[in-house]
Design a binder for these strands. Structure first.
Lengths: 107, 107
DNA sequence: TACAATACCTTGTATCGCAAGGTACTAAAG
DNA sequence: CTTTAGTACCTTGCGATACAAGGTATTGTA
């Protein structure tokens, strides 16, 4: 079997939650997010992250501001909006529910 | 925002894991699975479950046997194969990893 | 024989993660 | 001034999945 694929599927949707958890603490730009999630043992690809950030921005959950960089082009620093905070609260509940379900099934 | 969709996405892939956790304990047929997962607060649709069971069967993770029913047509009772047990162990590790990641990000 | 209940399965749609590739800006080297 | 390397942002095409809706087959009862 290809458990890698299944594990990848298990991460689906979790990414959105993890990114919002991250931005809840501090503004980040794309490479920040990739690196910090990597430290948390969650691998994210660029091709996954950018469309996700754009979607959350479009849904009003994220905002961003441009900041200059000393070593290259300017960066988009994303932050949680008020709606984003509220959505995060609901996703916290969703995570708790999944967690309860798994622990219940595992006994 | 539509957090329902996000929650649905968060469950993606988890379903496979939860079903295997369930079958690890006892053989079940489709409606058993739907009902037991419902008790564990995880909603599954028929149109989701049947293709998933077929796929796991095809991958050699599940086997099944027909059993007569006193109230209707016979039922397919699915069980975990040896390969399925092994895959379940790997998925346990995957779940632990995700769980660690989320808890790390939540501090 | 007709009908309802149960059980299994298929098709079409939307969404997502990912690999690959592309564009634009900055700074340093020639 | 031009070229090159590095950084940052974004898009396209593909495979996989959950779900809604609809279909088929078997059983028992009226």
């Amino acid at each position: 079997m290809n458990t890698d694929n299944t594990k990848s599927q298990m991460r689906k949707g979790m990414l959105e939650y993890c990114i919002m958890l991250l931005l809840h603490r501090q503004p980040c730009y794309a490479n920040d997010i990739i690196q910090r999630l990597h430290e948390a043992e969650m691998i994210v690809m660029e091709g996954t992250l950018y469309p996700l950030l754009s979607r959350l921005k479009k849904d009003g959950l994220l905002g961003y501001e441009w900041r200059e960089s000393t070593q290259g082009p300017p960066r988009k620093y994303y932050t949680l909006t008020a709606d984003g905070q509220e959505a995060l609260t609901q996703l916290d509940a969703g995570w708790e529910e999944i967690s309860r379900t798994v622990n219940f099934l595992k006994q």
